[in-house]
Simulated scan of single mutants.
Amino acid sequence: MTSIAIGLLATACAAIARFVMDAIVPGAAIFPLIFPAAMIATLFARWPAGATSGTISVLYGWYYLFPVKNSWRFESPAQAVTMGSVVVGVILTVALAEMFRRAVRSAAAERDREVAERDLFLEEFDHRVKNNFTLVASLLDMQRRRAGEGETADALQAALSRVESIARAHRHLYRGSGTAPGSVDMASYLGELCTALSEALFLRGAITLDCYSDHAAIPRDRAVSIGLVVNELVTNAVKHAFPGRDAGRISVRFEATENGWRLTVSDNGTGMSEAKRTKGRDGGMGTRLIDAFARQAHGTVSTQSTAEGTTVTVELEA
């Protein structure tokens, strides 16, 4: 019923267009509108709709318009050949439109199947990657616990934090949070990262970590690098910014600028001593890591330190 209804609708539209043309140029172009009407009806509602539209249009034109009005007879063999050509043309139009419609549906079904297979593959890949991250993090944490106290334990803790930062970006990438494919929403990512850092570094009450981020869809690799910069800077601030103090504040801000984005990590600690500044200029391990991660994120690092605290700014290109 739906196919027939659409066929009748296409026929009515063709008839209206025919009446308009006939009002402008009486008797001209009797049959051309039959073909697009039949084709459109077929594409929208399969061949029965096209056959309905074509049959009604041909019979109407034959009886009321050509060759003799209000009659089925022909005045010459040429008129019969003309009408036969119109019928064959309508049949071919409906057949070709139906073939095209089926080809499109088949291609769409194949595409949907490929998309479903890809989604299944990505889901399996995501599951395996998460398991691998979990395994690596567990091994590092086990080694850290066995190491007890000292530089080895600190190094393992730093490595563990970096692995967890990368894993967190991976989770945001495959979570489908409304960002573009391959991108990470920085507001969600940095918020979760700061929460995890607060728990991992045992920040409770006296030393607080504040985090603010504009919503920005950043490509995965750059988001990972930015997260690693935040991880290094916050960890360094916790370790070195508040010697002999029980209270302090660390702030992380990620904001859009005219030329890209700006990441700022600041604290209200005691500032950097001359020895630490010299070591930083000479390229200590922490400084080299931060510079390397910043370059991967297409950013440049600048540091300001006074007796009231330290501020590290990373200017990121768009």
Rank of each mutant, 00 (worst) to 15 (best):
A15E: 11
L203Y: 04
A223L: 06
S57C: 11
P48D: 03
I226T: 01
I250G: 00
A28H: 09
R73C: 10
L203Q: 03
P243C: 05
Q296C: 13
A137N: 07
D112Q: 08
S305L: 02
I24A: 11
L289C: 11
S177T: 13
V234A: 01
R73I: 14
T313C: 07
T152V: 12
L59H: 03
R144H: 08
I34Q: 01
A80M: 11
F19K: 15
A297D: 06
A12S: 13
A107Q: 13
T82S: 13
A137K: 02
T2G: 14
H172G: 05
K130S: 14
I166N: 07
Q157E: 13
G54T: 01
A23H: 13
R222W: 03
L173T: 10
A137E: 08
N268A: 03
G283V: 01
A116C: 06
E123T: 15
G54P: 01
C194M: 08
A180Q: 10
G244W: 01
L43T: 05
T310F: 00
G54M: 02
G54Q: 01
E308N: 12
S266Q: 11
A49Y: 05
M285R: 12
V230A: 02
D112W: 03
S198Y: 00
I34V: 13
R288D: 09
Y212L: 11
E315G: 08
L120A: 14
G50T: 00
S183L: 08
L160W: 05
V136I: 15
A318K: 11
L203F: 04
A38W: 02
N259V: 15
D214Y: 02
L228N: 03
L160C: 07
S177Q: 13
D210F: 07
G191N: 09
E255C: 07
D210L: 09
N70V: 09
L289F: 10
N259D: 15
T152L: 14
S183I: 06
M21W: 09
G280H: 07
S302A: 11
R146P: 08
L316W: 03
L43D: 04
A116P: 04
P243A: 03
G286S: 12
D119N: 15
M39A: 12
G54R: 00
D185I: 00
T152P: 03
S165H: 05
S305G: 06
R168G: 09
A116E: 12
V90I: 09
A80P: 01
L9G: 14
I250R: 00
Q143P: 01
V90K: 00
A14L: 05
T278D: 12
V94C: 01
A80T: 06
A12K: 05
H215F: 08
T93Y: 00
T152F: 05
A23M: 10
R281V: 08
C211R: 04
T313A: 08
L156F: 02
A108F: 12
F31A: 10
T303L: 07
A107R: 14
G260C: 06
A103C: 13
L135C: 04
V314T: 04
V238S: 00
E317A: 13
D291Y: 09
Y212V: 13
H170E: 10
E274D: 15
P67G: 06
